[in-house]
Simulated assay, not measured.
Amino acid sequence: ALQCQALLCAALLQASSSELPALTSGGALALNVTFDPGTWTLTWNCGGHVTVKSCTALTTKRDGKLSRQKILDPVCRCQFKPLTLHLGVMLEVNATVNHMPVHEKLTYVNRGPEGSAAQNLTCFIHEARVMTCTWEVGPAAPADIQYFLHIRNSTGHMLTACPTYLGGHVHTGCRLEDLTLLQRHVHVTVTGSSQTGDIMFYDIMLNTKLIERLSPPGNITVACNSSHCVVSWSQPQTWSHMSFSDFWYEVDIQRQDAEPGSANPKVHISSEEENRYEFPSPEPRPGHVVRVRAGDVRSKRWSAWSPCVAFGSEEHGVPRLHVYLTVVTVTLLCALGLGLACKRFVRIQKLFPQIPEIKDKVTDNDRVNPETLRKDLLLQTDESN
């Protein structure tokens, strides 16, 4: 029972913290002007004796500049375009009551200690289906601070409260996995709650198409023949509608054994229905890696790089310069060795000259036939006997 009671209290606390306090004028009772910050609407007593000529909203932007909206000849209400309210807003109503001019002014103030509001609120859509918002605790926020996030459309209609908070009990982030209710423009408000009193809120208008972080291209493949290679990929999935003409791509192809300072330049590919890039790459083909990222041609946003895909020989190729130097070195060493061998042979010939052979007395030929020599010796022996 205590757990249910705690959950009920938390739900009531979140519901109450989603509503910004309305503002009612203390001026002309006949007008009774009221400002609803949730819908950015001024209302007043609407009767036959009241005629409103115009109403104006003057807001301060984050850069300190003023923004003015003016509506002429409204009927019973003025609904402004979405206003950023955390820096305050000045409201004016010009009317006639019983033919007497009435000028009503209201100042909407962000109540609470300065520095208690959430800071650095950022939201982004990623993975084509998830929106994540993060913020920081205000420097003057009390110890028991707890923040809540709510999203409205451009007419002030509540779309959703945060379904999953990040950052523990304090809440410093929100994750939404159901984006079906989101529209092109949304108003995000982070309010605060504390037992000590009022907490300032923070609000921002977002263009959901511009806050989407593109995913890298998928299904990257490389096909090669004897002379060329083709890299192909698929268009990344997005939450907002984007056609092939909304994208451009950057292809990065590098050798696996590239030397420092010898990287290839990246190639920009214009949007085409068929996502592919063909380039010359004759065999034998050393090992390469390729990666691709996608960009939005309008907002100049880029996705992260895709995982690298390898192609070509798995063995690192030997650089041509190294091959050339090796061949030249071996050739010089062989020539030097041959020269030294020849020089040594000449020296040996000089030190050890060739001994002359016995000449044949009969034929006076250096080459002596052993059979002839034997017969001559036998003949000489017979004569001596």
Rank of each mutant, 00 (worst) to 15 (best):
P163V: 01
C334D: 02
P356N: 02
H150K: 14
E212L: 07
I211T: 11
A30N: 01
I71G: 06
E383Q: 14
S193G: 05
V137G: 02
K70E: 15
M200A: 10
E371L: 08
P307Q: 01
R276I: 10
T41A: 02
S313R: 09
A304R: 02
L106V: 11
P353H: 02
I355N: 15
L377K: 08
D364E: 05
W248V: 10
L149Y: 01
W233H: 06
M100C: 06
R77E: 12
G317M: 04
Q5I: 11
L351C: 10
N385H: 14
K343E: 10
L182P: 05
L87C: 07
K209S: 08
L373W: 10
E177N: 07
P280G: 03
N94F: 11
E278T: 14
L13Y: 03
N365H: 09
H103I: 15
E274N: 08
V330I: 12
H169N: 06
Q146N: 06
Q119M: 07
N219V: 02
E371H: 09
V368Q: 08
A140G: 03
G192W: 08
P265T: 02
R347P: 00
Y202H: 14
C78P: 04
A117Q: 12
T196I: 04
K350E: 12
H103A: 08
H228S: 15
C162H: 03
E357M: 07
P307A: 01
E314P: 15
A143W: 12
W135G: 00
S240W: 14
G168V: 05
L179W: 00
C334K: 01
Q254W: 00
R293D: 01
V328S: 03
P37Q: 00
G197C: 10
M205E: 11
E383K: 13
Q119N: 10
N153L: 04
I358S: 13
L106W: 02
T329V: 13
C174P: 07
Q237L: 13
F279Y: 08
M100K: 11
V230E: 14
G312M: 06
A10M: 08
S271E: 11
G88C: 04
T155Q: 13
E283P: 14
V362F: 00
R320T: 13
M242F: 13
E127W: 04
H288N: 14
P280H: 03
R62W: 03
Q354H: 08
G295I: 01
K350D: 15
M90A: 13
L182K: 00
T34G: 11
H150Y: 07
A118M: 03
L321N: 14
K361I: 11
E250W: 00
L206G: 04
E212G: 12
D366E: 09
P353G: 05
S17M: 02
L12I: 04
H103Q: 05
E259G: 01
H103G: 05
D73L: 12
L159Q: 03
P284R: 08
R285L: 12
L325N: 06
I220T: 05
H268W: 05
C9M: 10
L214W: 04
E314T: 14
I220G: 00
I358A: 12
S17G: 07
D360Y: 09
W239F: 07
V188G: 07
H150S: 05
A11Y: 07
A30I: 11
T372L: 13
G312E: 13
L106M: 15
H316M: 15
S245H: 15
G261I: 10
L121D: 04
L336V: 12
S306F: 12
T84C: 04
P307V: 03
Q14G: 00
S262F: 07
A335S: 09
S232R: 15
C162K: 14
L13G: 06
